[in-house]
């Protein structure tokens, strides 16, 4: 199976191609630069490098969120438009599931996260099993300290992986103590090859038209509007 995988859910930009299910190439940067400018040149360059044409693809995999709204939209728009134009399925993979792959050989639970501002994180809970990384608890947006307290109660070692580790390291060590295992800076970066590999194994595929990001959070204006409607109903 030939696969293109795209991840722009954080500052990390990742593009990877599998040929016949085997990694052919990847491009990954961790820079505070504009995905909108850089993604398509990276995709074109990688296709040239691995000597493949878009029409040879069987499916396109993309990190569907959570993450930066704009970042996720750039990846998803690119993936679904290519998928539609080529008449191929598009497979959305949780960015948390993608990041959790970095703990494949960890014996314990894995808590990947992205910073979501105001003390919140996008996170989820995963575990490495013989048949792959299994999701133990749904992806969510939550206050990080409460999440860590709940993990502490489970009493198991927790691998924390995140490109936003710097901002959260102190809190993690404070809340989890010896249970906290913090990966290296390299473990913290989501891998587009891992993304491709997950996407290859998924049976649930969607057509481009049906596919949109999984933001895990309403737009602020919509959340406020729903609050207002609720208040009005109470009166």
């Amino acid at each position: 199976m030939n696969i293109l995988a795209i991840d722009t859910s954080t500052y990390v930009m990742g593009v990877a191609i599998l040929r016949d299910g085997i990694p052919a190439g990847e491009m990954r940067t961790h820079l505070k630069k504009n995905h909108s400018i850089r993604l398509m040149p990276a995709i074109r360059a990688l296709f040239e490098e691995v000597d493949m044409k878009p029409a040879e693809l069987d499916r396109i995999v993309v990190s569907e969120g959570p993450g930066s709204y704009t970042g996720v939209r750039i990846g998803v728009t690119t993936a679904k438009t290519m998928a539609w134009a080529l008449n191929r399925p598009v497979i959305g993979v949780s960015s948390m599931e993608m990041l959790a792959q970095n703990g494949r050989y960890f014996n314990g639970v894995i808590s990947p996260f992205y910073d979501a501002r105001r003390g919140q994180v996008f996170t989820g809970l995963y575990r490495s099993m013989s048949n792959g990384i299994i999701r133990e608890s749904e992806d969510r947006i939550t206050l990080h300290d409460g999440w860590l307290k709940a993990l502490k109660e489970q009493g198991e070692p927790v691998l924390c992986v995140s490109p936003d580790m710097e901002k959260h390291k102190e809190l993690i060590q404070q809340e989890l103590g010896d249970l906290a295992i913090i990966g290296t800076e390299i473990d913290a970066l989501p891998s587009p090859l891992e993304l491709a590999r997950i996407g290859m194994r998924k049976d649930v595929v969607t057509t481009a038209h049906e596919f949109s990001p999984n933001y895990l959070r309403l737009a602020e204006a919509e959340a406020k509007w729903l609050e207002k409607i609720k208040d009005e109903k109470k009166r």
Binding site: M40, T77, T78, M82, A85
Partner: peptide
């Protein structure tokens, strides 16, 4: 980004 993806595809 849709236009770029389309043009490439």
């Amino acid at each position: 980004n849709a236009a770029k993806a389309l043009a490439f595809a």
